[in-house]
Design a protein around this nucleic acid. Structure first.
Length: 551
RNA sequence: GCGCCUGUAGCUCAGUGGAUAGAGCGCAGCCCUGCGGAGGCUGAGGUCGUGGGUUCGAGACCCACCAGGCGUGCCA
């Protein structure tokens, strides 16, 4: 990237100045460049400001000294020093124009980076208990995880997307019994869902389906057997439902990992034995504990309850043992909701207990989504029964708008999802603004094709006007966005970039007619449009969105 | 009580120590005899929660406080 080239040039110049004795021989600060406010060029470096203190020289003086010995950068038109000590770089228009050909040549690989160097990353997300349909809050994690996977792959990582199916434990038992009760009710029996069970209407529907398909067979067997068998059926249907809901949003997993397998596959024993041998396991108060307090945690955590059943936490120890030790992922990213935030330090302690570098496990916490209809907040709880499912949301708002909306806020911000507002705004939703730009481009390209205008030999050096170059500059930010999103794991930058890109395009479109009386300029601009289409498509596709040719 | 997250324009939100703090929506205007007006352009609108501190420089970093959300040893 040109950006890195400028950093290297500044660094080389600073070292050269030191070698010549023009600057003090002190350690240089980290050299970075950023995009300055407009009218200050394309890139700005604040190196001189940062170095002023250690160098005991004025920033302006340092900046002037550095640029005096700096080698020419072929892509750069001019280098200037500006108060209070910035070094500003302006790119050559001709070089910018050439980038259109470069982008076209790179095609779908434009923006791909090799930051990942093939590092094996597992991205685990959603992983909702299969006790009911996904609700609105789960959509955020789903879209986020899927988008991060897309971006990390573009950045050169090997990424596997995984859904951890919590198909073991007490929650599932409650689900199975609740389902059986609903099934009994289908046959007019006087049974009641236990208080700690699942009361949602979806279980009534599910039980009804099963009753219809299987008749009353489960009434003619022992209670234990009936609950177990109807449970398996119900679980499968719920998982299929979840898979379908995610599919509507284009979220597809590579692996569906069963919690039960940790117990039947011996991984639970292996992991427990390992941490027991290392002395991190004690028995007290009738339960088995992980002594995380010895690792700087403020409290210990129960692995096996006094009734003999393992906790979710124990499963997670085994699960992460499996991820790192058995499946040998270099890096694991888990996306959890804010309600699991207290679990993070425990898992970091587990990493240390397993002799693994805690930094290899990254846990992204997304803040809560609250759902509203106007001013009325809707409580989201499966057990309470009053839920707006993710599927309902997609029905009302549309898949692309859901994706864009979920991505458009930083992970750390809570989010009010107002259904009325989302619907009312849908015509002015930024998603349409961005997609419209793509459709507009497609329309122009269609017209060119109808008119039989070829532009393979278009000369991009004819692209010299401000709106043209401004748009090219914006396209060239795309690889930077891929880098930022993959480094910081912050997909929301994509939505802002997409809007900026659309603004730059619409502005260009207003000022520059593409298909005109001038055949050479027409060909050059058609090339620009072609590259523009590519960058829009790349950006939208990273977000899992459609890039429509018509709207 | 303690831990994590948040507080920036009327509203929803960007801004990981640098230049005059930005965008969308809303508001006040302007622009259609040209490729898609789901568009372009201009303007009004800010004690960046409060108070200290660090720094040449703080919306950003540190401390305290205020407000909201989430969590806090046998739920997940």
């Amino acid at each position: 990237m040109i950006r890195n080239e400028i950093c290297r040039a500044v660094e080389a110049a600073a070292l050269e100045a030191q070698r010549k004795g023009l600057l003090p021989d002190a350690a240089l600060p980290e050299i970075t460049v950023e995009h300055p406010p407009e009218s200050h060029g394309d890139f700005a470096c604040a190196f001189a400001l940062k170095f002023a203190r250690t160098a005991r020289r004025s920033p302006m003086d340092i900046a002037r000294t550095v640029i005096a010995v700096m080698q020419d950068i072929p892509e750069v038109e001019k280098v200037e020093v500006a108060a209070p000590g910035f070094i500003n770089f302006t790119l050559k228009g001709a070089w910018l124009a050439e980038q259109v050909d470069q982008i076209l040549q790179q095609g779908e690989s434009f923006g791909n980076l090799d930051l990942g160097e093939g590092v094996k990353v597992q991205l685990e997300f959603v992983s909702v208990n299969p006790t009911g349909p996904l609700h609105v809050g789960h959509g955020r994690g789903a879209i986020l995880g899927n988008t991060l996977a897309n971006v990390l792959r573009a950045a050169g990582y090997f990424v596997e997307k995984e859904y951890y199916v919590n198909d073991a434990g007490a929650q599932m038992e409650a689900f199975y019994s609740s389902l059986y009760v609903r099934y009994q009710q289908c046959f007019g029996m006087d049974a009641e869902v236990p208080e700690e069970g699942y009361h949602g209407d979806y279980l009534v529907d599910l039980a009804g389906q099963i009753a219809e398909e299987k008749g009353d067979v489960f009434l003619r067997m022992s209670l234990d057997k009936a609950v177990a068998e109807i449970g398996v059926l119900g679980l499968d249907k719920i998982i299929e439902g979840i898979r379908g809901d995610l599919g509507r949003l284009g979220v597809v997993f590579d692996v569906w990992f069963s919690e039960k397998m940790l117990y039947t596959g011996g991984q639970y024993e292996s992991a427990m034995n390992l941490i027991r041998e290392k002395g991190y396991v004690v028995e007290k108060e009738g339960a088995v504990w992980f002594v995380s307090s010895e690792m700087g945690e403020d409290k210990d955590n129960v692995l096996i309850r006094s009734n003999g059943t393992p906790t979710y936490f124990a499963s997670d120890v085994a699960y992460h043992y499996n991820k790192f030790v058995q499946r040998k992922f270099d890096r694991v990213i888990n996306i959890w909701g804010a309600d699991h935030q207290g679990h993070v330090p425990r898992m970091k302690a587990v990493m240390r207990a397993l002799d693994l570098d805690p930094d290899r496990l990254q846990i992204i916490i997304t803040q809560m989504v609250t759902l509203k209809r106007g001013d009325i907040e809707i409580k989201i709880s499966k057990r309470a029964g009053d839920i707006i499912t993710l599927s309902d949301l997609v029905d009302e708002v549309g898949a692309d708008a859901c994706r864009f909306f979920f991505l458009s806020r930083s992970l750390d911000s809570q989010m009010d999802f107002d259904l009325e507002l989302a619907k009312k705004q849908s015509a002015d939703n930024p998603v349409y603004y961005v997609q419209y730009a793509h459709a507009r481009i497609a329309s122009i390209l269609r017209l060119a094709q109808e008119k039989g205008i070829g532009f393979q030999d278009g000369d991009v050096s004819l692209l010299v006007s401000d709106p043209e170059l401004a748009y090219i500059r914006k396209m060239l930010e795309f690889p930077e966005i891929v880098e930022i999103v993959s480094d910081r794991l912050e997909p929301h930058h994509l939505t802002y970039y997409a809007q900026d890109l659309a603004t730059a395009f619409h502005s260009f479109y207003k000022q520059c007619r593409v298909i005109s009386e001038d055949p050479k300029l027409t060909a050059a601009r058609l090339k620009l449009i072609q590259s523009a289409r590519l960058v829009f498509a790349r950006t939208l596709h990273l977000m899992g969105m459609n890039a429509p040719d018509r709207m």
